[in-house]
């Protein structure tokens, strides 16, 4: 699924990476614990999270994640935005809470990281 489909499904605002919406997302990881993201999120994942600090972008960078979407309308701080721009990692903000966001994407056919098969 393309990032621009996710933008539509989650009624999201794109904060960083308007030109990167053709990026392909294969699965989703919904998580606020970055150590868990580092341990089970696969590359080519979208990260849904409620945390907005720069370490979230660092985590995405290290784990080769495709994009980050902040749930429940949380706007990231400027440092987070700057780092994402620097690393070309798209940032989205959806007004929808975590559980519903996961549900909508799952319903649209995106698998979780543990069930994704190549």
């Amino acid at each position: 699924m393309k990032l621009k489909d996710i933008e539509r499904i989650l009624e999201a605002e794109v904060i960083v990476g308007k030109e990167l919406l053709a990026k392909e997302v294969k699965m989703v990881c919904g998580c606020d614990l970055m150590s868990d993201v580092l341990s089970f999120a696969k590359s080519e994942s979208l990260l849904l999270t409620g945390l907005t600090n720069p370490q979230v972008v660092r985590t995405a960078e290290m784990a080769d994640l495709q994009a980050i979407c902040f749930v429940r309308g949380k706007k990231p701080e400027q440092e987070t935005i700057d780092m994402a721009e620097d690393k070309d990692i798209p940032l989205l903000v959806t007004p929808i809470p975590m559980f519903e966001s996961c549900g909508r994407l799952y319903q649209a056919g995106l698998p979780g990281c543990s069930e994704y098969k190549k």
């Binding site: 614990l33 868990d36 600090n53």
Partner: peptide, 11 residues
């Protein structure tokens, strides 16, 4: 900050 859950060394 999303760390310190005792998963680091394990990871």
């Amino acid at each position: 900050l999303g760390f310190g859950a005792g998963m680091g060394l394990n990871n």
